[in-house]
């Protein structure tokens, strides 16, 4: 009898934990997994004019059920110059921004990790504060600084460094600035976490053994901080490659990137299949670096 009660009790506990798992699991399947499959499905549908602006994959004719996959969009994507250009631009801008974030973020993270332990949280807070204010407004703020009669041009002319305003806004330069500005904390934070665990005794040992500071950095600090560098670069590169807001607000018409391509295809051209195709390609281009980095990272650890 007692056995039976415990069995019932266990069953109940099990069903409770199933319910607990089921709630977030179902949520993620409905709102995350199914949407990805829908994008995949619509990317191989034929686009038509109307609502919805795509054809069904299954066609019932002559008593047979036909499944029709239309890969034309994928062909267009790889043949059309415009999309190749968008892909190139996205990769180029994201790479430059990631590199600049690394160059700027490394000394900052290093310096913060070497200050007194009680001041470290405050210095980090100052880096993170802007991140909590609106992203859109932080990008918008740069218009006032970079535009033709903006603050920077104004000061440069006042100082007689230039005669005519520089074209700072509406090009790759302003987009890169915007990206570095918005994503710098994403680089500093993982680097700081990594560098603060670093044992300074290692540096002393290297110096005692006759290493120059520069050589010590290259031989000891840099290799040891590699996991932080990888984490920071992934965290910056990934949002940059799918970025829409920054190129749209700070860029010019020639800065056509993948995020903008999806937006235009969807909202302006109402070509849902094409937008989905670009989205699938973007996913592939994101998953690729992550898996490579993961492989490389795990290989390095073993």
């Amino acid at each position: 009898m007692k056995k039976l009660i415990t069995a019932i009790h266990n069953k109940l506990a099990q069903s409770k934990s199933r319910l607990l798992i089921g709630l977030p699991y179902m949520w993620l399947i409905i709102f995350l997994l199914i949407p990805i499959f829908l994008i995949l499905k619509i990317s191989v549908s034929e686009s038509v004019l109307g609502i919805p602006p795509y054809k069904n994959l299954t066609i019932w004719s002559d008593a047979t059920l036909n499944l029709v996959f239309d890969f034309e969009n994928y062909l267009i994507l790889f043949q059309d110059k415009l999309y190749r250009f968008a892909l190139g631009q996205s990769i180029k801008l994201a790479s430059i921004a990631t590199f600049l974030c690394l160059i700027a973020g490394y000394p900052i993270a290093y310096f913060i990790s070497r200050t007194k332990e009680s001041t470290q949280p405050f210095l980090l807070l100052l880096i993170l504060l802007p991140f909590w204010t609106s992203f859109l407004l932080r990008v918008y703020a740069w218009i006032g600084l970079l535009s033709k009669n903006g603050l920077i041009n104004h000061f440069l002319i006042k100082l007689h460094l230039i005669n005519d305003p520089l074209p700072l806004l509406g090009n790759s330069f302003s987009i890169t600035i915007g990206m570095v500005y918005c994503y710098l904390p994403f680089m500093v934070l993982p680097l700081y976490t990594n560098l603060s665990k670093f044992d300074p005794a290692l540096l002393e040992a290297a110096a005692d053994l006759g290493c120059t500071p520069w050589k010590t950095f290259l031989k000891i600090t840099l290799p040891l901080s590699l996991p932080g560098i990888i984490a920071g670069c992934t965290l910056v590169f990934i949002p940059c490659i799918g970025e829409f807001v920054i190129p749209e607000i700070l860029g010019g018409p020639e800065n056509f990137v993948l995020g903008k391509a999806i937006w235009t295809e969807f909202f302006s051209n109402r070509d849902w299949p094409m937008a989905s195709t670009i989205a699938i390609c973007l996913i592939i281009f994101m998953v690729l670096p992550i898996t490579i980095v993961k492989k490389f990272h795990h290989g390095g650890q073993v």
Partner: peptide, 24 residues
């Protein structure tokens, strides 16, 4: 699968999340 799904929005571009959710 659950662990992958939970971390997916961290890396997924918002444009794709928006498109997928709209289709849903």
């Amino acid at each position: 699968l659950f662990e992958v799904l939970v971390s997916l929005p961290l890396i997924m571009p918002e444009v794709i999340m928006g498109l997928g959710l709209l289709l849903l």
